[in-house]
Design a protein around this nucleic acid. Sequence first.
DNA 1: ATGAAAGCGCTAACAC
DNA 2: GTGTTAGCGCTTTCAT
Lengths: 342, 342
Amino acid sequence: MTTGGKQASAPTMGDVARRAGVSQMTVSNVVNGRTARVGAATRARVLAAIEELGYRVNVSASRLRSGRTGVVALAVPDFSLAYYGELAERLATRFEAAGLRLVLEHTAGRRDGELATVERGHLDQYDGLALVLAAGDAEEVARRHPDRPVVIVGEREVSTALDHVVMDNVGGARAATEYLLSTGARRIAVLGAQPDGPVSMPSLRTRGHVEALAAAGAPVDADLLIGGGVAFDDGARAAGILLAGGRLPDALLAFTDDAALGALHVLATAGVDVPGRLQVVGWDGTRAGRFATPALSTVDPDNDAIADAIVRLLVRRIEGGPSLPREVVMPPARLELRGTTR
Amino acid sequence: MTTGGKQASAPTMGDVARRAGVSQMTVSNVVNGRTARVGAATRARVLAAIEELGYRVNVSASRLRSGRTGVVALAVPDFSLAYYGELAERLATRFEAAGLRLVLEHTAGRRDGELATVERGHLDQYDGLALVLAAGDAEEVARRHPDRPVVIVGEREVSTALDHVVMDNVGGARAATEYLLSTGARRIAVLGAQPDGPVSMPSLRTRGHVEALAAAGAPVDADLLIGGGVAFDDGARAAGILLAGGRLPDALLAFTDDAALGALHVLATAGVDVPGRLQVVGWDGTRAGRFATPALSTVDPDNDAIADAIVRLLVRRIEGGPSLPREVVMPPARLELRGTTR
DNA sequence: ATGAAAGCGCTAACAC
DNA sequence: GTGTTAGCGCTTTCAT
């Protein structure tokens, strides 16, 4: 009994052809469903031979020759952030319906990790790639001239040559801040903020927040712009800082639901009344937020629309090729008010 | 400006060789780090040519010829369950340290999806596969005689030919139930229970629970064995049923943290005192549970140990081949008591 | 230390 | 409707 590793070498198309008494090309035609090119009787014989031998096509060989793979990839910064898991699950279903298999890749949220996914030789393994940008920017990716369809996800549109599903970062942050202001909040802490630096998810959301403050004539308090990451721990840490600072803000906008939940935990432990004393708004519209206690108010990016757009743009590009006009889609974010706001 | 699709065809090893004035084979040796076979000056020239041309190896071609890929896959039932995201993140880091890239595949929690991942032609794309079993069983997978290293994750060991990282399903459930009993709980509802049927995650955990009841001389109340899935919504639904049933249990054991969190939300909304009136225990040791309010008590499978074991077994098998003796590892689960138990 | 030849398994292009 | 030929880009093997 063997435990993995090469067996008495796998049957090839040639083996099937010999067994069925046809040419290899006919087997290829059967396997690839080119029914017009094969007679019904021949087809049946080939199928029988395939069954008997337990034959499966060698994807690497097929890919090398034809360039097609039947597989698309989604590259995300972090497998463990709830948002990406939910996005991936939505995409898996939709791509399957389009006859494509989805695999997930990992960029580690680093610029080089993101650029590596569009390198020739890496990208060649897929019919297309949806790339969630967290660290680098779309322009830089476009400059690599990916030789397969790539759809950029996230960020704001900057001039680039690639199809793009844009997250409504500025608009979502503006809406959240406007709402908090309207409830009487005056000191709004922002968790994950990045006031300067290159265009990125955090900087765009920070900009939306600042714009809303400016529009309302409210001052920006730099002490309330708290940096840090997007995970549970980051949120918890930030809440700890706020608590230690003495003068609590009256609202908190976190750039992910995970971070908001981390903050919520620390606030609850400290006995802070949410939303009475302090309101909290997350971002992502994850299920984890919906089922939190109290249920987390959140900036909902409209994830179904985002998933639909990713699939549509990528399939369109795979089928239509490079001459198709470039397309940019931005589903508007909407504020989902639940239990952590007034 | 193009927007994806083939460009003026990518440079090949032959192009690099011509440019550097060496043979293709020398380029291959440089690219694959066979330094002993290439002189330093030649190496430098080749590297320069690669840089100038922007050359990248074609993974499909390399794979076709050599069989190696440098990539391993983790196949999970559901991208969006927190547990799998966290496991994937742990594995990505560890495999990277071992010089392997990790990609995620999706089985949709279906038997055929699981079996499809070990088909020749699918599996051939990877150096190895870690397969999380939810629907099918390991025996059935082994019968397909996967021709690459496969490590089964989950379930209990049944006789099989494959390396196996076993989750401590029976032991974890027994420990949780014993503890709840020790706090005075008499009516323990089990969420996700599956009292009969083939060996599977739910049936094994149910068995552990029933064993603990039996050992304590406590009766099994079939009404408290609530079926259903593992996601937030499933937990919420089950809690709703419990609430509607009138006579509340005094404890609840859910087979995932996500489901426990869903239940917790419904209970909190209904004003049920947790853990005063009803204790809740989840399963998975996810960060989402740790940061819930109150923090979720959980059966912690020891995820670092599980990730270590998966990587160790897979790398060992990839390097050692089929003749290596088969190995089975089961890190013991431990009860992590937090705020939802007394 | 470097190169030449062969061929991995498949499909595009064309012939019949 | 079916077969023949050629070759995708790489690595193996063997020669020098």
